[in-house]
Design a protein around this nucleic acid. Structure first.
Lengths: 149, 149
DNA sequence: TATTGTTATACTCTATAACTATA
DNA sequence: TATAGTTATAGAGTATAACAATA
C-alpha cells in the first residue's frame, strides 16, 4: 500500500502529461502558421475525401453543431467544400480543395516531424519498449471513434 | 530516413496523448464532483498557503488577469481568501479556508487514485522503466515554472 | 518608472435546444 | 418518428490593453 503522496505515479503523470502537452503546443504552433485555430487544423488533418460531417464530429469527439462552425471557417478559407450526397440528401460530404489538400499535407508533415523530434532521444529498441509499456495502460487500445478510416 | 507515414512515432504520439487525455478527463470529472470547473480545480490543487496571485499565474501558465477571475470564483465559493501582504501592499496573498483545504485534499487524493489506477497495469520495475524513458524526452526536465514550492 | 492586481473586452472552443429538410 | 445538418445562444478558458495602487 502506497502513501497518498507516492512520488512514482505522480511523477509518471507529470511526465506523460508534459510530453503530450509539448506535442500539442507544437501542433498548435503549426496550425497558427497556417492561419488556422487548433480545432480547425485538427479537423483538416483528420479529413478524408467525401466524409459526412457526422463522421468528422465523431473523429473530433465533439458535438455536430461544432462541426458546422469549424467547416464554415475552413470553407471561408477555401480549404473544403460541402457536397450534398446523392444517396441521402440530408448528408453533406466534405471535399478537400487543392489548397486544402496541400495544407493538410503540410500539417501532417509537421506533426510527424514534431513526433520524430520528441522521440529521437530514444533508440529504436527503446521506442518499441516505450510503445509496449504505454499500450498496456488501460484505455490504451482504441474504440471505434479514435480516427478516420 | 523514415517515410513520412512512419508508424512508430505516430503510434507513440497517439499513446502518449491518449494516456494524458484520460488523466485529464478523470481530473475534470473529479473537479465537476466538487462543483468546480477544470481551471478552478487546478488552481485549488496548486495553491500553497500565502502564495501571491502572481505565483499562481505562473504555476497555471496563464495570464494574471485570468487568476483574478479564477480566484473570484473560488472566493465566491468560500474556498480561498485574499490577504493584502504587509511587506508589499500591492501583493495579495491567497489563503485557503478550512473548506478549501478539505476540497484541495479531496482533489489531490482523487488525482493520486486516478494515476495509480492508470499505471497499475505495470509492475514496479516497469513503472521505473517507463519513467526513465519519458524523462529522457526533450523537455522532460522541468524549468522554474512547473509547479509550486 | 516598474510591478501587482483589476477591469473591460474579445476571441476560441464547446454544448444544448430548437429548427429544417429529408428519410 | 428518426436523422443530418444548421442556427441561436450561453458558458468556460484565455489573452490584450488600459487602469489604480504601490513600490
Amino acid at each position: 500500500m502506497s502513501a497518498p503522496t507516492d512520488p512514482d505515479v505522480r511523477e509518471l503523470s507529470t511526465l506523460v502529461t508534459g510530453a503530450a502537452e509539448r506535442l500539442r503546443a507544437a501542433f498548435n504552433a503549426a496550425a497558427a502558421e497556417q492561419g488556422l485555430t487548433p480545432v480547425q487544423a485538427a479537423a483538416l488533418v483528420n479529413l478524408r475525401e467525401s466524409a459526412p460531417m457526422r463522421d468528422l464530429a465523431r473523429w473530433l469527439a465533439c458535438d455536430p453543431s461544432n462541426v458546422t462552425q469549424i467547416v464554415d471557417a475552413l470553407e471561408r478559407r477555401g480549404l473544403v467544400g460541402r457536397q450534398p450526397s446523392p444517396q441521402d440528401r440530408r448528408v453533406k460530404a466534405l471535399v478537400l480543395t487543392d489548397e486544402g489538400r496541400r495544407r493538410q499535407a503540410v500539417l501532417r508533415e509537421r506533426g510527424h516531424a514534431q513526433a520524430t523530434e520528441l522521440f529521437a532521444a530514444l533508440g529504436p529498441d527503446e521506442r518499441v519498449l516505450l510503445r509496449d509499456l504505454l499500450a498496456r495502460l488501460p484505455g490504451g487500445g482504441c474504440g471505434e471513434d479514435c480516427g478516420p478510416a
